[in-house]
Amino acid sequence: MHVTLIHYLILSAIMFGIGVVGFITRKNMVIVLMCIELMLNAANINFIAFAKYRGLYEGMSNQLSGQVMSLFVITIAAAEAAVGLAIIIVLFRSRKTINVDDVDLLKH
């Protein structure tokens, strides 16, 4: 079967699903952040695939718009990783743990 838009969309859906499973089941906060990166990455594949192939709306397709959006997503991912890792370091300093289940101050 020739590779078309569908293949890229399914690839990105599966990658997003793996990211969601990791996000929910892992206890290590650093790995939870890594799974967020995985999910953002899957979204990026969608953007770039829709930039190359024609979606439902013919008039709106501009090849490079999707790539520009993907550029913005990469930037957001970088910012999110920097702030998230800073928060993890501060948390580790004050509470000596990065286990997501131990940080339940707002629950009680």
Binding site: L5, I6, G55, E58, S61, Q63
Partner: peptide, 8 residues
């Protein structure tokens, strides 16, 4: 989506 045509 699966029309597989390149974007115009």
């Amino acid at each position: 989506f699966g029309v597989g045509e390149l974007a115009t």
